[in-house]
Simulated assay, not measured.
Amino acid sequence: MSARPSRIHGGPDGLGVPLHDFSTNSNACGPCPAALAAVQQADATRYPDAGYTALRARLAAFHGVDEARVLLAASASEFIFRVTALAAGQGVRTVWLPPLSYGDYAQAAAAHGLATVNKPGDAQLLWACEPSSPLGAAQESLSALADGRQTLLVLDRAYEPLRLSAVPTLTSRQFNTTWQLWTPNKALGLTGVRAAYAIAPLGQEGSAAALEQLCPSWPVGAHGEAMLQAWAGHKAQDWLAASLKTLREWKTRQITVCESLGWRCLPSEANFFCAQPALPQGLGLQEALAALRAQGIKLRDTTSFGLSGHVRLGVQPPAVQDALHNAWQQLRQTNS
């Protein structure tokens, strides 16, 4: 019997919910009051409309696209596997992944027998993410990818709502040539509510319909439907805009805290960044992270993204930053 595939992610783990959690990129100002209220008031005694008629119309209006281009998904991960299944069913045999990227892209490709190639021009399915994860930076060569002749380019926009600096690389015209994957639960501070949606490229309504055929009924439950409805409303968007100002201030402070510990922080445009810790004498990174986790502090090891020797830190409030600072100082003293 084969072993269960490893799922590496931030957030709660076998030790429970971390007291101070830097390992996820959820909006630390959350939860968004309007979205939380909508979720709490959702009617879970009934099925959602199987066609998500009102929700699709609301999301289409929010993005200024035709309703036929909007697809609901149980989560980003679910859509990653579903669009990979569609590609494989259409004869796609090769995939290109960003050098540093979320593990589900590769897992989905492996599950459907797609070979990973090193050059985008050799691939029929391409993945991109901007702001990228784990770096929170611009996706390298994204404009060229969008202008290419590849069969399928999927742009993961999970962190676009949490962009703290710079602007998107692609133009409106280029966005219309890509699949866009949106997961608002991060921006709303409600990552436990699993719901996402995708926008098909202009003129790809046939592929959108094919993806609908691969989807089971009701991929999004009543609570996810309520969250997405709230997401497209002005109350949630106004709250999000205000939260970005706070996150910028917290991020500046958090980088200062990390640098005071001797850590090397990498550039980032989002509400998270990567850093290379200055490890205490005699400790490896895994040992140091385990020691922090024992004190209720969790950081995300970026090895699974392809970036070894570094951690990814979601921006947290000052009190949580101070807890990390103090715990790391204690770790250094203990191992000096």
Rank of each mutant, 00 (worst) to 15 (best):
T171G: 12
P5V: 10
D66Q: 04
S2E: 14
S6H: 15
G224D: 04
R194Q: 05
L170I: 06
M1S: 13
S308F: 04
A195V: 14
R312I: 14
P277M: 09
C274K: 02
C265N: 07
N118I: 10
G189A: 07
S268G: 03
G206I: 08
L19I: 14
A327M: 07
A200Q: 06
A38Y: 07
V117Q: 03
Q204Y: 07
Q333H: 12
G314K: 08
G136P: 01
N335G: 13
A209T: 11
Q180P: 04
E67F: 09
S308G: 11
L142E: 03
L299F: 06
L244M: 05
W127G: 03
Q237M: 08
D156R: 00
H325W: 14
F175P: 01
L289G: 14
T303R: 13
Y52G: 08
A198W: 11
A61S: 08
A128G: 14
A187M: 03
G206D: 13
L228I: 07
S207I: 04
S133L: 06
C265E: 06
Y52I: 11
T178P: 01
A28S: 14
A34M: 01
W179A: 09
A137L: 04
A278I: 09
R56E: 01
A76E: 13
L211T: 11
P18S: 11
G296D: 00
E205I: 00
